[in-house]
Design a protein around this nucleic acid. Structure first.
Length: 272
DNA sequence: AAACAGGCCAACCGCGGGGCG
DNA sequence: TCGCCCCGCGGTTGGCCTGTT
């Protein structure tokens, strides 16, 4: 038996909210709160909206301190790091970004950040991934996160020059036994690539050497990152400071060769 | 100038989980 | 314990906007 609808779909209004509806809802919520019930407000203020629609409008647009507009490089880093760790748990990720909503973060990831980071996926190091693990195909989102982990690991080295010299990056082909449907334990055959010390402030050199993130960015964005790098270095900070705690150890290899832990994520620098 | 394609984002949909009678 | 109801969440859609041909 299907679940009863939360409202009469035939009589509720859909589509964009009018300024009048916004104003009514805002005034009502600010004066009365929701009382944990989103079904009542639309009836009480006389708008023909589903309670869920009211909740969404309030959370994503009307509530105080909502931040609209461009995401900062710092926010980018938080989103990337958390996505690697926990996947598409947008509400949790958004909770780490004051003023941002899960919807905002999700849209930003899907329309910009993912493309920026995965845009060079086709240019993976020396042949890239074998997506088939034994007879098991990796869950797509898990695979994507693994790929991002590797690409972000590169950024990590960009911004930790002390780690860059003769650093090694796992680019890996996976093989082994399925353990829980999406993950694989040892053995993981690895290919290791060495690359030279890179200084991100030399954007041109970075383009030439790594061919990844920076040359994917438009000039203004790249300049932003370079500026941010200078600022962070000036403050004695490194980007992507998840190294030692991540499933990849600081030498760039997986710490435990266990894809399960990597896919589940436990190395975020941002405590949840 | 018109047509088309792609990007972007607000809003909707449907499911899972928790509270409660 | 069961079923209903609602909330919260992630995935998806649809329409507007902008850039390109």
């Amino acid at each position: 038996m299907g679940r009863a609808p939360c409202c009469d779909k035939a009589s509720v209004k859909k589509g964009p909210w009018s300024p009048e509806e916004d104003a009514k809802l805002k005034v009502y919520i600010e004066e009365h709160g929701t009382g944990g019930n989103w079904i009542a407000p639309p009836y009480k203020i006389g708008i023909k909206r589903c309670g869920k629609s009211c909740r969404l409008r309030w959370l994503n647009y009307l509530r105080p301190n909502i931040k609209h507009g461009d995401f900062s490089p710092e926010e980018d880093k938080i989103i990337c790091s958390l996505y690697i760790s926990i996947g598409s748990r947008w509400s949790i990720i958004a909770a780490q970004l004051p003023g941002r909503t899960d919807n905002d973060v999700k849209n930003y990831w899907n329309t910009k950040l993912k493309k920026r980071l995965l845009g060079k996926q086709r240019r993976e190091l020396n042949g890239g991934w074998n997506e088939v693990v034994g007879s098991q195909t990796l869950n797509a989102s898990a695979l994507e996160r693994i790929r991002l982990q590797i690409q972000l690991q590169q950024l990590h080295y960009h911004h930790n020059p002390s780690l860059c010299s003769s650093s090694k990056i796992l680019q890996g082909q996976c093989s082994g036994n399925s353990t829980n449907g999406i993950v694989v334990s040892e053995p993981i055959s690895t290919q290791v690539v060495e690359f030279d010390k890179i200084d991100v402030t030399n954007a041109e050199a970075s383009e030439n050497v790594d061919g990844f993130i920076l040359d994917d960015l438009s000039s203004p964005s790249r300049d932003r990152y370079v500026e941010e790098d200078k600022r962070m270095k000036g403050a004695g900070l490194n980007w992507w400071a998840y190294g030692d705690e991540s499933p990849m150890s600081s030498n760039g290899l997986f710490a435990d060769h266990n894809f399960d832990s990597m896919v589940q994520g436990y190395g975020s620098p941002y405590d949840l």
